[in-house]
Design a protein around this nucleic acid. Structure first.
Length: 344
DNA sequence: TAGGCGTGGGA
DNA sequence: TTCCCAAGCCT
């Protein structure tokens, strides 16, 4: 096994030539660091989310809220609406709580240490280390899915994830150094994204292949080894598209906790085994087909029903249909699109 | 502490 | 179609 300094040098040299240009990133070796607000915002958006999906959200957020204090002053509803479609909505609730904590308890300035950052809502071990390293150039052991994959291949770790986490964190820690501490994790993540990819890794282009045990063994894509995931259950429900004849549709405010927490939604039945149709008000109802959606831990089929009642007396939130399409999480946006399409 | 928590893209 | 996966956090 080559020594750690050789591998570090090889990867940082590669990064100098191959770093991706990203809106939240300072170029390799830059004299300046990126605004901690932008680093933090990008890291939260990128949790379990791809760069192409997050990038337009990042642009919209930083245009609308240029500083953390601007974000702290946002209304809950406008923040949640701006996050619609990005998923994992607890991130949005924590994002706002974090911005307000920074504004109120830290004078609008992000803590500049891993420990300080770790106390903020929605900032876990990974994000605290990433912001400390990238925004403040502090040596930190930044371990995300990319780093776990690269390390698991470098050392041909046979223990399956997630049990291998402590071991992968330990080997990753061997590479942490005061030399270019902000560039190191970004170099590792770029390598994981473009070369040491989950499938079909490009080992011929890899600056670390000279020291990679999985490459030497000949089957690098076998790593990281994972436990097989359980099958998702399939749930069913009904979604109601209720229109008022004036271009508005009835929405409901979902509770803050749980699935799609804090978001607006369409009125629906309970979700479970396929149920009979028991609408929330007298018809006539028009059947508009169904939409399928996949969540993290179950699959959902929603039958969509359309009505335009004469009078209703419920605490629905009547929302312009175009506006509704923009603020709803994807599962309800799909159902609303289907309902409006069936209405012609 | 293992499970809850979104979405879209690629093979 | 189906499965896997992508810069995790919280409880």
């Amino acid at each position: 096994m080559p020594d750690v300094p050789s591998l570090r040098t090889a990867l940082l040299d590669w990064y100098d030539q191959n770093a991706r240009s990203l809106p939240w990133r300072a170029p390799p070796g830059a004299e300046y660091r990126t605004d901690p607000y932008r680093v933090w915002l990008s890291e939260v958006m990128l949790q379990q989310t791809t760069v192409p999906h997050a990038a337009p959200y990042f642009e919209r957020f930083t245009t609308r809220w240029p500083t953390v204090s601007d974000l702290a002053a946002a209304e809950d509803a406008e923040l949640m609406a701006a996050w619609a479609g990005l998923g994992y909505y607890a991130r949005a609730r924590n994002l706002l709580a974090c911005a307000r904590a920074v504004a109120r308890h830290h004078g609008g300035v992000f803590p500049d240490t891993e420990e300080g950052l770790r106390t903020l809502p929605g900032v876990g071990a990974y994000t605290a280390a990433a912001v400390a390293a990238i925004a403040f150039d502090r040596a930190a052991n930044v371990v995300d899915g990319n780093v776990e994959r690269v390390m698991s291949r470098l050392f041909a770790v046979e223990t399956p994830l997630p049990a291998a986490r402590p071991q992968l964190r330990a080997v990753s820690g061997q590479f942490v150094s005061d030399h270019r501490p902000g560039d190191w994790p970004q170099a590792l993540m770029d390598l994981g994204s473009s070369v040491c990819r989950p499938r079909s890794p490009l080992c011929e282009e890899c600056p670390l292949s000279f020291g990679c045990k999985a490459f030497r063994q000949g089957e690098p894509a076998r790593y990281p080894i994972r436990d097989r995931k359980a099958d998702k259950p399939h749930r069913h429900g009904h979604a109601y598209v209720i229109r008022d004849g004036e271009g508005r549709v009835a929405l409901v405010q979902r509770p803050d906790k749980g699935l799609l927490g804090g978001m607006l939604g369409l009125p629906t039945s309970e979700w479970g085994e396929a149920l009979g149709f028991a609408p929330p008000l007298a018809g006539p109802w028009q059947a508009a087909g169904a939409v399928d959606h996949v969540f993290t831990h179950f699959r959902l089929t929603l039958s969509v029903h359309l009505a335009e009642p004469e009078a209703v007396g419920r605490d629905w939130i009547w929302t312009d249909e175009t506006q509704a399409l923009a603020v709803l999480p994807t599962v309800f946006r799909k159902a609303l699109e289907r309902g409006l399409g069936a209405a012609g």
